[in-house]
Design a protein around this nucleic acid. Structure first.
Length: 628
DNA sequence: ACCGCCGGGTGCC
DNA sequence: ACCGCCGGGTGCC
């Protein structure tokens, strides 16, 4: 039996230690998924760089900028790639060493993702990691920061396992469900184990454990707490499901609905209620964290006034058996809102809870407002957020869990979570290049030949076509070009920069690194990654104030811009990033050292100067390579 | 992506 | 383009 840790464990387990890595790879990990929208891009690229250093000549020698965590008094310098110490005065040797090192570190990108990554957890469990670098961290973890949880979470599951009948039983339930779900009146499944004992089944007083689902349609979803008295009420008028069974609070029929029973359970329970006069009362067992999650309940069967006295006919027994099967089945496979949605909620909620001191009122309300969106809008947003984009053709958006995409798009656009474009007039210059990317090559060729007024365009690569279309916009009027584009792409949508920025921040605050994102949840859910359960007590926030967070984020932006520049060989941009980073890192340090505040090494990894020092080292080793 | 899979876009020996 | 390759989307109910 595979034991999944609950998602809340993920957050801490995935905190990784960047300090182990050096070189470009570590920069890439630091950046994580490239942000589509960089709020400071313009100023980073064009504002004058404050220069606290009187000597503007950037030395090409990496000796100058040591990563700050490696103070060096010995006259040696440390290779940024392999970490070996070299005499700082022998430049030739340093350079040739760097060549060797870089050429060794580059040809093996296929395997480099493994092994170098450490989680806090591994550190916690392997005391052999007593390198001086890690000292403060291991100290932190030894001092009862991480307490192993009693695995109460899985205990129940394991017990279930033992009680559960073997696997074929499960599939039996499954197939009966499938067999009957299409017909509205439940045909009675051929239960192989139809009771030979035809004595009356003992239903009165029997207890069922199940869930409340469909809480979005409840009258008052907030009014649930553990122990709340509930009863079941048929809802034959329900348009979605004529078998629907409502869960209402209290025992009177006029009470507010809290939600519904799972559909498959209602399928068997409703005829029992309708035809055999059974009634059910009980209470809420526990309350989940999120208001849309399913709520475990317990109900006990009783007889209503017009109920029969004897429950022995075959139909009844069959229905009752099926009720029990479904209950069992659903306890093993609880129905749920879409998992990625729950994970996203968890992320939002945790990021909010742990970082209230970093967020503005505006941001908090915006994050809260996400939970007020309709289910489908939330799902669509999350789906789009995880896709590459930035633009998406409406025609390429289709998800089985989102029934009415149009409606979801409209709601998201109204609340400014996304931008929606269907009219050529709405198209602005800066978007054109990105929108052109959603077209395929043959569509681009058409536009190309019209706007350049010549045929062909064959043999040109996609990016070439795009840039040549943009640069030749003198050929056709602007409005005509945007019309041509939209004629082919049809309506397009894009996540708004506002929500993109905030969600990115949320994601970073939750995972605390760039390598993990929402898909990590999925990998855990599927057992591709396994983390033992442990508890985490946060003694100190990673970011003590908003200013630190913002400067960290801006440093990541610089890192990303340089990373892009490295890919596209834009050396001027690389140079600019290095200079900027160098100036920031020195001002930051004079700040740091002027205060007596001690910064633990784990917090050090989340400072702008840490990021900038990486930018400088990685950038310089790139330039070093360029030079020869 | 730390998997594994699928399906579309793309290139020109 | 009947091909391989590459890279994006996806997995959960």
């Amino acid at each position: 039996m595979v034991i999944f840790p609950s998602p809340s464990f993920v957050q801490r387990a995935v905190v990784t230690l960047e300090m182990v890595l050096t070189g470009r790879e570590s920069l890439i990990r630091l950046i994580g998924r490239r942000r589509r929208f960089l709020p400071n891009r313009r100023s980073i690229l064009s504002d004058p760089i404050p220069d606290p250093n009187p000597n503007p000549n950037l030395s090409p020698n990496p000796v100058v900028e040591q990563p700050p965590q490696q103070p060096d008094q010995s006259g040696d310098v440390q290779c940024p790639v392999c970490g070996r110490n070299l005499p700082s005065d022998d430049h030739n040797r340093i350079n040739s060493h760097l060549d060797v090192c870089l050429s060794q570190s580059q040809p093996k990108p296929a395997t480099k993702r493994k092994l170098s990554q450490r989680t806090l957890l591994e550190l916690n469990f392997s005391p052999s990691n007593s390198k001086p670098k890690l000292q403060s961290l291991s100290h932190q973890s030894n001092s009862a920061s991480f307490l192993p949880l009693p695995n109460n979470g899985c205990e129940e599951e394991e017990n279930c396992d033992k009680q559960e009948p073997p696997e074929k039983h499960e599939t039996g339930v499954n197939s009966t469900l499938v067999a009957t779900s299409s017909s509205s009146s439940p045909s009675l499944p051929l239960n192989s184990g139809v009771p030979d004992d035809s004595k009356p089944v003992d239903v009165l007083g029997a207890t069922l454990e199940t869930f409340i689902v469909g809480r979005r349609h409840a009258d008052n979803p907030d009014e649930i707490c553990a122990g709340t008295a509930i009863s079941l009420l048929r809802d034959p008028q329900n348009v979605k499901d004529p078998n629907a069974v409502k869960v209402v609070s209290g025992d009177s029929a006029c009470c507010k609905s809290l939600g519904f029973l799972p559909r498959h359970l209602a399928q068997y329970l409703s005829p029992l209620i309708d035809n055999y006069g059974l009634g059910f009362q009980g209470h809420v067992t526990s309350v989940p964290k999120h208001s849309l999650e399913i709520v475990p309940i317990q109900v006990t069967c009783h007889k209503t006034a017009n109920g029969e006295s004897k429950y022995a006919d075959e139909t009844f027994i069959c229905l009752w058996k099926n009720v029990q099967h479904v209950v069992k089945f659903e306890r093993r496979n609880p129905p749920s809102t879409v998992k990625y949605q729950l994970n996203f909620f968890l992320m939002l909620q945790e990021a909010l809870r742990n970082n209230i001191h970093l967020l503005t009122e505006d941001e908090k309300t915006y994050m809260d407002s996400f939970t007020l969106l309709s289910n489908e809008s939330q799902r669509l947003f999350i789906r789009l957020y995880t896709r590459k984009g930035p633009w998406f053709r409406m025609s390429s958006i289709s998800y089985s869990e989102i029934v009415d995409t149009q409606k979801a798009v409209k709601e998201l656009a109204d609340k400014e979570y996304i931008h929606f474009i269907e009219d050529a007039n709405q198209l602005c210059m800066s978007d054109v290049k990105d929108i052109l990317n959603v077209l395929n090559v043959s569509e681009l060729r058409e536009i190309w030949s019209i706007s350049l007024k010549k045929g062909g365009g064959h043999g040109l690569k996609k990016q070439h076509l795009i840039s040549s279309i943009i640069s030749s916009d003198a050929g056709v009027p602007w409005s005509q070009l945007s019309t041509m584009i939209l004629e082919r792409s049809s309506s397009c949508i894009r996540i708004s920069s506002k929500s993109e920025s905030l969600m990115w921040r949320t994601e970073r605050l939750f995972f605390l690194n760039g390598e993990h994102d929402l898909s990590s949840f999925l990998l855990v859910d599927m057992g591709k990654i396994k983390y033992p359960a442990y508890n985490c007590i946060i003694s100190e926030p990673i970011f003590s104030n908003r200013r630190n967070l913002l400067s960290y984020e801006e440093a990541i932006e610089v890192a990303q811009i340089m990373d892009e520049a490295l890919d596209t060989n834009k050396i001027e941009v690389v140079l600019r990033c290095i200079k900027l980073a160098e100036s920031r890192v020195s001002t930051d340090f004079s700040d740091r050292y002027s205060t007596s505040e001690s910064v633990s090494s784990i917090q050090h990894l989340f400072t702008a100067s840490w990021v900038y020092s990486k930018v400088v080292t990685v950038g310089i080793s790139f330039l070093e390579q360029e030079r020869r």
